[in-house]
């Protein structure tokens, strides 16, 4: 099992929410993508992603992030910061709820979790930039960012 994972989340049928799926598609096409980093299309699975996190050392989520930086500029957030955004469970509970619950329900040591993304309608160069950024973060964690 790969110890490091990139999980791209979002809805590929919905253009305002397809940054993650587009990064996923792009990552799969990168010839220089490291083999020791797994890439998953997390879709809208939310809490159902829990089993994928168990046994990993580092997990990087890729999503559209609004209001944290100018459009097109990659952003990195720690898992703790994202978990603090959780408000409770609902049908639309997402990554914040998942990360908030992780330490409470994980049956093995939980991984370092980071969330990367960008705001705005990303063009292809931006998607490429975010994909490569997610690899860097998966390799090195938040060090240096």
């Amino acid at each position: 099992m790969q110890k490091t994972l990139i999980i791209c989340v979002g809805n590929r049928f919905f253009s305002e929410d397809d940054t993650g799926p587009r990064v996923y598609d792009h990552l799969l096409g990168l010839s220089d993508r490291p083999e020791d980093i797994g890439v998953i299309d997390g879709g809208l699975a939310g809490l159902a992603l829990l089993p994928l996190l168990e046994g990993r050392q580092r997990v990087v989520f890729v999503d559209r992030l609004e209001g944290l930086a100018p459009p097109g500029e990659p952003v990195i957030l720690t898992g703790d910061r994202v978990a603090a955004m959780a408000e409770g469970y609902g049908h639309n509970a997402g990554i914040p709820f998942l990360l908030a619950m992780l330490p409470k329900v994980c049956s093995s040591p939980w991984p370092e979790c980071l969330v990367v993304g960008m705001s705005g309608d990303a063009d292809e160069p931006m998607i490429d930039q975010l994909a490569r950024f997610s690899i860097e973060v998966a390799r090195n964690g938040s060090n240096g960012f």
Binding site: D17, L44, G46, F61, R64, L65, M85, H91, G94
Partner: peptide, 19 residues
Amino acid sequence: PCLVCSVHVIGGGRRRLMA
């Protein structure tokens, strides 16, 4: 209720941060 099921796609000005 499951409104994500019963209605879909988006109105202007509403964006999820992360889901």
